[in-house]
Simulated assay, not measured.
Amino acid sequence: MTEKVAVVTGARRGIGLGIAKRFLQEGYQVLLAAASPESAAEELVGQLNEQYGREESRPALYLQCDISLEEDRKNLFAFVQEHYGRMDALVNNAGVAPNVRLDLLDTTPESFERLVRINLEGTFFMCQGGANLMLRQLREGLEDFRPRIVNISSMSAYTSSTNRGEYCVTKAGISMVTQLFADRLAEAGIGVFEVRPGIIATDMTEKVHEKYAKLIEEGVTPIRRFGRPEDVADCVWAAAGGLLDFATGQVLNADGGFHIRRL
């Protein structure tokens, strides 16, 4: 039986790594991609293959890819086609936060453009490239092939943070990217989904850990704990694993209930 293949961007740490591990647990071949060079991920990939390898196989590979660069995106999809010949799941998780949190009235064009280029433009064209590859592979009649795309946005897609407005704008944009591709690809049977993480304990939130810990303690989320990468990975797997195919375009909130409007 042919092993299925998942591609996860921003997978060297945090949420992306948690998602990659979930696919490995489910028996997928996984291509981890991130902007860091291969040398930075060599030890990680070795550990993953030791933990999840089956009969000396190496189910985890790593490829350097800056999703904001067209050439890197093309190289990634070319590698997938040449090395695997199929891509059953594409998880667009790569993204960045502002280098410095600034009040909305002080946000710089440089910061705004950087986040748009990586978070929004990068995700859009990863969806485009992934969709075209999946459509081509569908025409090839691959065995047991029902590809899906999952975009990772954030509760910031609908939540105002006036000291990082450019981040909120890009995450809101990802929501529309998801709807557009879900609509366009529905006739081909390719499901496209959005997962919105909430307050997740990662290195990205470490600098504001104390602030978020206090908010959680005060009840900002009905489930009063930090989220874990595994919580996000569970939502990704629900979509990418085929449980939600009739619900294409669906948003899954991995946020401890933050999205619930409460009095």
Rank of each mutant, 00 (worst) to 15 (best):
L120D: 01
R136D: 10
V220G: 01
Y62L: 13
P229S: 01
E43A: 14
I200F: 05
E82H: 14
R262C: 13
D144Y: 11
L31N: 05
A254G: 08
E71V: 07
E26H: 13
K21R: 15
D66L: 15
G46M: 09
F79N: 09
R225P: 12
V220A: 01
A188K: 10
L44H: 10
W237G: 04
R54V: 12
T107N: 08
A78Y: 03
F124M: 01
E38I: 15
V96P: 09
G18L: 11
A188S: 11
R136I: 02
G256A: 09
L180V: 11
L63M: 15
Y158L: 11
E50M: 07
Y212I: 14
A89W: 02
A201V: 07
R86F: 02
Y158A: 12
R136A: 10
G165F: 06
E55V: 07
A11N: 04
D106L: 13
R261Q: 12
E110Q: 14
G241L: 00
T9W: 08
M87K: 06
Y84P: 04
A182F: 05
N92P: 08
A186L: 06
F193E: 00
I260C: 09
E82I: 02
R184A: 11
G14T: 13
H83G: 00
E113K: 10
M176R: 14
N92L: 08
K4P: 03
C235D: 04
C235Y: 10
M204N: 09
N163H: 09
E210A: 15
E140S: 10
Y212L: 12
G256S: 05
R224C: 06
N49I: 15
L142D: 02
F226N: 01
R146I: 11
M134R: 11
T205R: 15
N49R: 12
R54P: 00
S161F: 14
S39H: 05
Y52L: 07
L180W: 13
L104M: 14
C65K: 08
A34D: 15
E210G: 11
T205S: 14
G18F: 12
M1I: 11
G191E: 00
G141I: 08
V91G: 01
E121D: 13
N92A: 09
R196V: 02
G27I: 14
R261D: 05
R117H: 15
T159H: 04
L44Q: 12
A182G: 09
V195Y: 03
G46I: 12
T178W: 00
R101H: 05
A213L: 14
E50V: 14
T221K: 08
G46A: 08
A78D: 12
N132V: 03
L76E: 08
S156N: 14
R117D: 13
G241I: 00
C65P: 13
I118D: 02
Y158E: 12
A40G: 05
S39W: 03
T170W: 04
Q64F: 05
A94R: 13
A11V: 11
L76Q: 08
V192S: 00
T9F: 09
K214I: 15
L142H: 08
R225A: 11
